[in-house]
Design a protein around this nucleic acid. Structure first.
Lengths: 334, 334
DNA sequence: TTGTAAGCGTTATCAC
DNA sequence: GTGATAACGCTTACAA
């Protein structure tokens, strides 16, 4: 008794069907084969519960139908939505997703890349914070939100356009004293353009905006100090704030309200991402919505499509504005 | 010019180091080898940028260091947290995560299982809604929140205990007329015990509770109709609601407030899951917190640990209560 | 200790 | 159209 429910192999199927190994292989690769043979093979496979061994196949073909997803984390709606959409888009194409979580740690990111090479994934889709990742030439790679310049395509939302749109909205809602608040990684990436767009819009309107940029390590207290300083007797010295994420918007909104500042009456807030609230499924704040599904689909398409014209394209997908209670436009505008 | 940056193989490393193939293999498998040999191999590997080919290895060893994660979706904090924790726990153990999203579709779930078999994963961790999944005997399987009875271990939160605790809390906060609301899949699973626990607690206290159970297909309107009927002039005929998820709690809370019912003054609400709000990182409602990290760790441990005593255990991990603004205990109790 | 060689389950290249 | 047979890159007896 040597074999203990070992998975059936092509050889077993061949034997069961009374044909040769090669014929079985052909059936499973849609290579022309006599109709009766094809049938016998299918039946034998069914009977034995045969499933092709993708490891053996991958070894031969050098293609594994597997794509690695490298993300910093999942416990944030934007990232989890991205992961879900990416996985779905891959599965539709017959690919499997190998998931790696890096926690923003550059070392972990590099280790992931190495694991991917071991795993012979057919490609990588990554949202990485490692400024100079060492990744195989020849291994298809698509970056999200981080443009590595030469030779690596990047998919992102239209961050500049989104920032500009945020400015337009705030101004059209009557804001005269715009402020920009940012918190996040110090690694430069596409999302940095949100401020550039906002700033450009404010300038064009003759309403230069103040701004305060923080990095992860700084925590949030500088924001609170800033707000304290600029809020005199519940009247802030600004009337419209564009935060670089919905998450930050919520934090700021909460702080202002708890200090007697009315949102949106005294100050209007616009965020970025398009996060919806659990349960009610409404936007958690007025926001610039990232087209997550489209970004995922595009990333997969670029990765898997014959990379002839792949080049080093930077693909920015259109965003849109959505009302979420922190501006004065109200539901009507939705 | 045949090879076009083909990945280096053990043979290349052996040649570069001037040793035999077998020796290289031994180095990479931590099998005793002369110190100088070991060194030469390491250097050669480094120089060539060699990475072991896990497909070739897997073909030989029948172990792929890969575990499949099968989840219905990711765009919900509980599932994304679970996915993140599971992936982390697996990576710590040197395993990679193969992610599958099923959208609650039993067919998709079965297809995933088949893909997993093709991929020769070493095991499966699944939160599945397929009542009678056909899964290989011999392929380690751990279920989350769904107990398949015989032979498949299941990890979940202590749902009964959590329901009981919710009852105790509501009663200790002064509730006299408890209500239970449930929405979700019609597939029975561990989470169903939340009501059982709550009901038991209410009974013990001599305060029998009403309840309304809905399934996904029903939508939410029956809840609203029910509430409308039981709220006379802004005074509801109940004063404490236990909802089976935080998500539902938020929905109900929103509905009540928009109809002039004060939460928590008129009605207190307790949810289940332990979801935190973006930005402020506070619990979105008073809730029974699931120990997600521990559940993930446990699932991985059970899956990967020598399955001698694995049996068909049902492992319930302890939950705890947390204040989140929808009850009368206030921050002090946290 | 180190090297040699036989597979693992496929695919692909041949003759038939 | 079909059936042998040689790889693919690795592990693992076994021989040296």
């Amino acid at each position: 008794m040597k074999k203990k429910s070992a998975a059936p192999t092509m050889k077993d199927v061949a034997q069961e069907a009374g044909v040769s190994l090669g014929t079985v292989s052909k059936v499973f690769n849609n290579i022309p084969v006599g109709e009766d043979y094809r049938h016998r093979v299918r039946e034998a496979a069914e009977k034995l519960g045969y499933q092709i061994n993708s490891y053996a196949r991958g070894l031969k073909t050098n293609r594994t139908q597997t794509v690695a997803l490298i993300l910093p984390l999942l416990h944030h709606p934007f990232f989890s939505a991205l992961a879900e959409q990416l996985t779905g888009a891959l599965m539709q194409r017959g690919y499997r997703a190998l998931l790696f979580i890096t926690n923003f740690d550059p070392d972990a990111e590099q280790r992931c890349i190495d694991m991917v090479r071991q795993n012979k994934a057919d490609g990588i889709i990554a949202l990485t914070y490692h400024p100079e990742l060492r990744v195989d030439e020849g291994l298809p790679f698509v970056s999200i939100d981080r443009h590595f310049g030469t030779s690596i395509p990047c998919v992102s939302a239209d961050n500049f356009g989104g920032g500009y749109l945020a400015g337009e909205k705030l101004i059209s809602f009557g804001c005269k004293k715009p402020l920009f608040l940012r918190s996040g990684s110090h690694v430069v990436g596409e999302p940095d353009k949100r401020f550039a767009g906002f700033d450009a819009c404010c300038r064009n309107a003759g309403l230069p905006c103040e701004s305060l940029t923080l990095h992860d390590a700084d925590g949030f207290t500088p924001f609170f100090e800033f707000l304290d300083k600029h809020v005199i007797r519940k009247k802030p010295s600004f009337d419209g704030i564009f935060c670089n994420t919905d998450s930050l918007t919520l934090l700021i909104c909460d702080y202002l309200r708890s200090h007697g500042v009315r949102v949106p009456e005294d100050v209007q807030l616009i965020g970025f991402d398009g996060i919806k609230s659990l349960g009610t499924e409404r936007y958690v704040c007025s926001t610039i919505v990232q087209p997550v599904a489209e970004m995922a689909q595009m990333a997969v398409d670029v990765l898997l499509t014959d990379s002839s014209a792949q080049s080093s394209a930077l693909i920015s997908l259109p965003v849109h504005y959505a009302y979420g209670g922190t501006t004065l436009d109200g539901e009507a505008d939705v």
